[in-house]
């Protein structure tokens, strides 16, 4: 379990963390999302004791990280996959980490096997692709078999096979009862991975909610209707008290009526239709809904996304 409470951190003029508080509970994947510069990486560095917070505290299993004697057995972290000596082999990189935790070479070979690096374990890490480095970083995070894991943008730069692999790994780690925190600046990345979301902007939490609840709320009991005669359908439904909107060629979104009523009304009016389904919002739509009235957060979006501020929804730029 990871608990973050009231973290504050200022770098010069920039308020990086401004009362960041949330909890990562065992047995589920918690997505940590927000635009670049929202404070995700800083929060992770503070949790790991790399940066000192100006206020508040972060606890891992109820204790400050820096007080842990074998920290990798409590929390495994992947912050920056490139942060290793390029001349050392993957196996030797893991070996010194293992020795720092009182672990032996057997555990090193286990995690190498686990992340699929066995064929290249004795090669220098400097020659690794980004995907291989990510795997090596994940091997390091898993080294101490920790009950909590924290990964900063783990799918960045991975090929599709790697992305699928990471998603499956995160799911299975959570299923084993571990607390998993995974950050991303892309909502869509977390759609099928996270159970819970901590949405951040400008150094504080904007929303702390379950993924299912968030999508449920954003879907708002709307019904999507596919029909060859949208005008007649809209007319009939409006008369029945629904709020209707044409959302595409032959598609109408209906709110205020459950799908059974929609079917009955259309049937009664003799309007043909090919499909009536509950509208399911995407995580990105849910996110836009969520932050639609958060003026300050939108300002934060603009401030951080220089080139992409007017770009497609849910993507706030690259890197950190």
């Amino acid at each position: 379990m990871i608990e973050v409470s009231g973290l504050r951190k200022r770098y010069g003029q920039t308020m990086a963390l401004d009362g960041m508080s949330f909890t990562v509970t065992p047995g589920r994947v918690t997505g940590f999302v927000g635009p670049n510069g929202a404070g995700k990486s800083t929060t992770m560095r503070v949790i790991l004791g790399l940066d000192a917070a100006d206020g508040g505290h972060a606890l891992v299993g109820g204790r400050p990280y820096r007080s842990l004697r074998s920290p990798l057995r409590h929390l495994g972290a992947l912050l920056d996959a490139a942060a290793l000596h390029p001349g050392r082999t993957a196996r030797h990189h893991l070996l010194w980490l293992a020795h720092s935790q009182g672990l032996g070479v057997r555990r090193v070979d286990e995690v190498i096997e686990l992340v699929g690096l066995a064929p290249v374990a004795r090669r220098r890490a400097g020659g690794f692709s980004l995907g291989m480095r990510q795997r090596l970083g994940i091997a390091a995070a898993l080294l101490g078999d920790p009950p909590a894991l924290m990964l900063d943008e783990p799918v960045n730069g991975l090929d599709p096979e790697g992305v699928v692999w990471i998603r499956g790994l995160l799911r299975s780690l959570a299923a084993e009862g571990r607390a998993v925190l995974v950050s991303s600046h892309l909502m869509s990345e977390l759609q099928d991975t996270a159970d819970h979301l901590v949405v951040v902007g400008r150094g504080r939490v904007v929303a702390d909610t379950g993924v299912a609840e968030l999508i449920e709320a954003a879907s708002g009991g709307r019904v999507r209707l596919r029909t060859a005669e949208p005008a007649a359908a809209m007319d009939a439904l409006a008369r029945a008290g629904a709020v209707v909107a044409a959302t595409g060629a032959g598609t109408v979104t209906v709110s205020g009526l459950v799908s059974e009523r929609v079917v009955a009304v259309l049937g009664g009016s003799g309007v043909p239709f090919s499909e009536v389904a509950a509208h399911r919002a995407t995580l990105e739509e849910a996110y836009m809904e969520l932050t639609g009235d958060s003026v300050e957060f939108r300002a934060g979006l603009r401030a951080s996304g220089s080139s992409r501020s007017s770009g497609s929804s849910g993507s706030w730029g690259d890197g950190r």
């Binding site: 560095r45 004791g49 790399l50 842990l68 990798l72 912050l79 920056d80 942060a83 980490l97 390091a140």
Partner: peptide, 14 residues
């Protein structure tokens, strides 16, 4: 130079 210092202090916070 490589950023490995963060891995070092993550593994050995003292």
């Amino acid at each position: 130079g490589t950023g490995m210092i963060r891995a070092t202090f993550t593994a050995m916070p003292r």
